[in-house]
Design a protein around this nucleic acid. Sequence first.
DNA 1: ACCTTTGACTTTCTTTGACCTTTATAATTT
DNA 2: AAATTATAAAGGTCAAAGAAAGTCAAAGGT
Lengths: 155, 155
Amino acid sequence: MANLSDYIEEYLKDLLHRSTAGSIEIQRNELAEKFRCVPSQINYVLATRFTFQRGYLVESRRGGGGYVRIVRVWHDGGEDHWLELIGEIIGEAISQQEAHGIIQRLFEEDFLTKREKLILEAVTDRRVLKGDLPGRDYLRARLLKTALLTTLRGE
Amino acid sequence: MANLSDYIEEYLKDLLHRSTAGSIEIQRNELAEKFRCVPSQINYVLATRFTFQRGYLVESRRGGGGYVRIVRVWHDGGEDHWLELIGEIIGEAISQQEAHGIIQRLFEEDFLTKREKLILEAVTDRRVLKGDLPGRDYLRARLLKTALLTTLRGE
DNA sequence: ACCTTTGACTTTCTTTGACCTTTATAATTT
DNA sequence: AAATTATAAAGGTCAAAGAAAGTCAAAGGT
C-alpha cells in the first residue's frame, strides 16, 4: 500500500463505512485539495476502485453546488452477491440474445417484475440502441449492468 | 443539496404541498428578497424545475399587483391518454435533465414504481450512454419512449 | 507492460446584472 | 368628467461570468 490512489480509496471506504445510509457525498475539488492532487485523480480512483464489479454506484452533478455521490450497493460476502456473477457474465459487451436470456432468467427467479423485464428488454433492443456493432454491444452491457445494480439500491 | 436554486425549489414545493388547491401564488421580488438573490433567479428556478414536462404550469402577470402562479397538474385519463402524453412530452431528442424530470413526474403520478424509476434513471444517464451530442440525446429519447410505451402495452 | 499522476481542454449547471415589457395608478390635459 | 399621458411597480429575457465536475492523452514510476 503505497500510492495516493490507494489512500484516497481507503479514505472514501472509511467514510462509507461510517455512513449509516450506505452512501456519501463529496466535493471533488475539496477532496483533491485534501490529498494535494489534481481533481481528475479523484475520477481515476472512482473509475478504478468504485466500479460495478465491486458493488458501487457513482452519481454526480456539475455546476455550482456540484457533488459526487458514491453508493455502496452491496458488501463483500453479502447476499446480493449473485449480481457480481451476473456482472461477470455480462462482461464488457453483450449481444441482444444473451441480454434477453439473462433478463428472462432473472424474471423467472423473481428478481424482476414483468414490467421491469419489459423495460429492460426495450432498452437493450438493437433497434432502439441503433449504432454499429462493437459499440452497440458495449453500450448494452453498460446499460444492463447499471440498471440491475440500481434495482438493488436501498429502499 | 447545496445550491440556492435547490432550496428555492424545495420551498416552493413545500408551499404547493400545503396548499389545498394544488396551486400557489407568489411575488417574484419578495421571494428573491427572502432568499437574497436577484429576481431573475426565480425565473431560472421556474424554468428548470417547474416545467410542463415535470407536471407544472406557471402563469404570471406583470405590473402593480403582479404575481406568479404555479399550478401542479395531475394527469387523469386512461391508457390512451398516457400514450398521448408520453408521445407529446418526449420529442426526438431529450437531455438528461428533462428525461429525469419526466421520470420523476411519472413516478409522482404513480405510473412508475420506485425501482422502475431507478432503472430508467440509470439507462438515461449520460455516463452510461456515453457518445457525443447530439446523438446521445436522440438515443436517450428512443430509449425512454420505447421503454415507457412498452410498459404501457405490456401486462 | 501496467498502473498512476498530471494538466489542458470540455461540458454542465448556477448566479448575476443590464435592459425590456406589461399593468395599475396618479397626474395632466381637453 | 373623460381622455390622455406620465410614473411606478411588478414581472421577463438574455447573455456573460462563475462554479463545479468530466474527458482524454501524455508523462512518470514500478
